[in-house]
């Protein structure tokens, strides 16, 4: 039991340390908002007029914003890779490993901090969404549930990126390694355009993959345009990703 209570307290101490960084270097938070804001601008105002949602009564901005939120939450997970790679590079992980702390807490604290930040960033994007004409069509509670669903998905991705961060030499490499993983998730998806316009093989992937399932879950919760089954589908995906990647990342950390 002592082991578990140390895991919890060490995780909180590490998460606090990682979040302090955000307060000290607020540019990090600002930059993580710039990219999704550009996407909002591009898709809402540049391409949006040419895209049909294929569903009567569903405006493109309402279709788009859950995709943007998910993109934001997913790209946020890169900071897990970059943060761990930098800590490794600077020798900080080495020191942590020589301390009588819980080893899982090093990664746990990182993921907890990044998940917290992800949640905040998604809320900010939601407010930006409202400013550009996004409307939710359901209850407040369901909107909050949508935010939680996305944060859980982002948290699952953090474990994937923890593994990447521990496997590369430095922050820049981690950044570079992240894009090829995120691109097929965010762009080959239903986040920005309906997959029905894509070639069959691509549409097949874009309808089913984890991020698309989560986008549908969020649309179900915020717009009511999809079946609530997708909420459970998304939770299953997130759970599966965590079950596979958390142990891999922890093992990688122990052995590196």
């Amino acid at each position: 039991m002592k082991g578990f209570s140390h895991f919890v307290s060490d995780t909180l101490v590490m998460a606090r340390r990682n979040l302090t960084m955000l307060v000290r270097v607020p540019q990090l938070l600002v930059f993580s908002l710039v990219q999704p804001m550009l996407f909002v601008f591009m898709f809402r105002y540049v391409f949006g007029g040419a895209i049909s949602t294929g569903q009567a009564g569903l405006s493109y901005v309402d279709y788009l914003m859950p995709g943007i939120f998910l993109q934001t939450a997913s790209f946020g997970a890169i900071s897990t890779a970059v943060g761990l790679a930098e800590d490794k590079n600077k020798g900080l992980l080495e020191r942590l490993k020589s301390l009588p702390m819980s080893r899982s807490a090093v990664l746990g604290g990182r993921v907890l901090a990044d998940t917290t930040r992800d949640g905040v960033v998604v809320v900010v994007m939601l407010l930006i969404g409202f400013a550009v004409g996004f409307n939710t069509h359901t209850s407040f509670a369901r909107v909050v549930a949508g935010i939680i669903l996305m944060t859980i998905f982002g948290s699952a991705l953090c474990w994937v990126f923890a593994l990447i961060g521990l496997s590369v030499a430095n922050g820049e490499t981690a950044q570079a390694a992240a894009f090829p993983i995120l691109a097929p998730l965010t762009f080959a998806s239903n986040a920005f355009v309906p997959p029905s316009t894509m070639p069959d093989w691509l549409a097949w992937w874009a309808e089913r993959q984890p991020l698309s399932t989560t986008v549908r879950g969020v649309r179900a919760l915020m717009l009511g345009t999809e079946s609530s089954d997708y909420v459970w589908g998304s939770l299953l995906w997130s759970l599966a990703i965590m079950v596979v990647f958390a142990p891999l990342a922890i093992r990688r950390f122990r052995n590196s």
Binding site: R17, T20, M21, R24, V25, K90, G91, L92, E94, R95, S98
Partner: peptide
């Protein structure tokens, strides 16, 4: 343990 790479957190 104190190391040659001075493992302290720059931002703290």
């Amino acid at each position: 343990l104190a190391g040659q790479f001075a493992a302290v957190d720059e931002n703290l």
